[in-house]
């Protein structure tokens, strides 16, 4: 299992050809109290960079982009039902969707965890 991070503050956990995607602790911290989340439907094919999910806090609305290309295996209905879990466990229970990985080379050049955490400190 490997975890990758993007400069858009998303994390991607890759297990076999399944990629689980969520937003980072830094991202939820910046958003503040999250009150709404919309996740993609199973079977939807997402291209890298496409709008995949929506997350809204009291103050702000943001899009979550697909960080890689693939077909949605599952959207996390738990975050749609109880968006506050994105605040309480952003990098665990608060994941947004799972994709079937099509092109592993898209992961090249993404940050690993320590590189991401170091980079966030510079923001």
């Amino acid at each position: 299992m490997s975890v990758y991070f993007t400069k858009e503050h998303e994390w991607i956990r890759v297990e076999g050809d399944t990629a689980t995607v969520g937003i980072t602790d830094h991202a939820q911290e910046q958003l503040g109290d999250i009150v709404f989340a919309e996740v993609p439907e199973t079977g939807k094919r997402l291209s890298k960079g496409e709008e995949a999910a929506v997350v809204e806090s009291v103050k702000a609305a943001s899009d979550v982009y697909a960080p890689i290309t693939g077909e949605v295996i599952e959207g996390n209905s738990k975050v749609a039902d109880d968006p506050a879990i994105v605040n309480s466990d952003p990098e665990g229970e608060g994941w947004f969707f799972k994709l079937k990985l099509e092109n592993p080379s898209e992961l090249d050049g993404l940050m690993d965890e320590s590189a991401y955490r170091d980079w966030v400190k510079t923001l």
Partner: peptide, 11 residues
């Protein structure tokens, strides 16, 4: 994640 697409009026 995108930058905020619109803010509520904090201001």
């Amino acid at each position: 994640m995108s930058r905020e697409v619109h803010n509520g009026p904090t201001d």
